[in-house]
Design a protein around this nucleic acid. Structure first.
Lengths: 242, 242
DNA sequence: GGAAAAGTCAATCACTCGTTTAAATCAATC
DNA sequence: GATTGATTTAAACGAGTGATTGACTTTTCC
């Protein structure tokens, strides 16, 4: 019932259709990054890409497919690079790489998008990651197993380096690392009036990666917490008893 | 031109209108938390709240106003409690509280929403925070200065405890703390199929707060990173040289 | 050169959205 | 008990959405 009419075969590289197709993709990403998800309508895409409205459905079948391709072409290479870097440093160190390298393998492929030219790609990555956290409907679930694989491989490598931690503690910290990374990615893309860009230092963002890695490595090295004595008083009891 | 017809005076507590009004607010929040932002239409709210569609505009003037009130009634008390806790522990320690207390003052008011009864409130807080990161249009900017004040007071307190860090480094870590907290908040609200809930440990979530605080405190204690020698090779050079 | 495929176009469909209107109902007050 | 203001209701409006159609033009390939 929902059969869509895709082009029968991919056009060759220089074909006009192929140019229109990738122009639609780039325009959608650019609109998405600059104006937000709600602003990405088929008509706004068509207008900005100088293409007829029907062209979007012609090339992608549906808006949902367009969104999917727009996301996946950024997300899949990112996660593949993470896995490659992790495998590299694990192999190089015979199974026990420095903690810094594991964190860097997860963080650096994303933080490379900090330059101005990658602004829209960065927005896609951030939006997709946050969308996964919130289970937004427009973010599909085809990558769920893929993300699970990334998580499992990183958690396994981290557990080997941090054997004193319980597995669920490592999983928690892995997620928290993802949260920090998302914010770090979002900072340069914040609008000038936004508080996220208020205190952006004059230093090059290249050094931010080193700071973030140091921050996270120290967090991973935190010793497991003993059971905390819950204060029996009211909700505003002193928090100093940790 | 955009004049809206609000009720002239607030109805008294037991009035039927007041009950309808808060029912709309609660229903909107519940829909927002369970189905996502896109599912919150005036018609879906009205149906779930057993109220006429026009009642929403009657009580709130517009959908935007409804959303604003829905967010602010959760966000404002949360941030006020953060500031109160921070001021308390700063005053108790004569200006130099333990780092744990500062982090706890920021983290605990939010993590209190981890129980099942606060699921929708938690979703509101998470969504609002992420929306600020992404500059989503539906998240208004009235709280920008408010958030700036929270950030400045926390950064000032942190700088006093971590004088060896540059101000912008503390600001970075403050943001990263927010990212970790958002993910920590989102974990319990993840849908069962979501990867975020895949490895949720059997332990009570009460202990997660202690873990997160330990993780973040260690991160804040990380020593500032020296200038990292950028590998001059290709993009896939070894990351072990930190 | 000409048929077939690929691509483009304006026009329109069915639908949902937030909002508004005007009449009907309810509750309190004089 | 009539009046007045607050609430509720059904119905519609206009704008905007994604998708589709069928005719038209361009490109490709034999």
């Amino acid at each position: 019932m929902n059969q869509i009419a895709r082009p029968k075969k991919l056009a060759v590289s220089g074909a006009p259709g192929e140019r229109a197709r990738s122009r639609i993709l780039d325009t959608a990403e650019d609109l998405f990054a600059r104006e937000g998800p709600a602003a990405v309508t088929l008509r706004s895409i068509a207008a900005a890409a100088q293409v007829n409205v029907a062209a979007v459905n012609y090339y992608f079948g549906s808006k949902e497919n367009l969104f999917e391709e727009m996301f996946l072409r950024r997300i899949i290479p990112l996660n593949e690079e993470r896995l490659t870097r992790l495998a590299d440093c694990v192999a190089r160190a015979n199974g026990a790489p420095p903690l810094e390298d594991i964190v860097a393998a997860y963080v650096l492929p994303a933080l490379r998008l900090t330059d101005a030219a990658s602004a829209s790609a960065r927005a896609i990555v951030v939006q997709y990651s946050l969308g996964r956290v919130l289970a937004m409907p427009e973010v599909n679930e085809k990558l769920a197993r893929y993300y699970a694989q990334v998580r499992e491989e990183f958690v396994a490598a981290l557990l080997r380096v941090l054997p004193h931690l319980a597995p669920h503690e490592v999983v928690w910290r892995y997620y928290w690392m993802g949260g920090s990374l998302m914010v770090a990615l979002a900072v340069p893309s914040a609008t000038p009036g936004s508080p996220l860009s208020a205190a952006t230092p004059p230093a090059a963002t290249g050094t931010m990666a080193d700071h973030l890695i140091a921050f996270l490595v120290q967090g991973f090295r935190a010793s497991p917490v003993p059971k905390r004595q819950r204060n029996p008083g009211g909700k505003k009891a002193a928090a100093g008893g940790i």
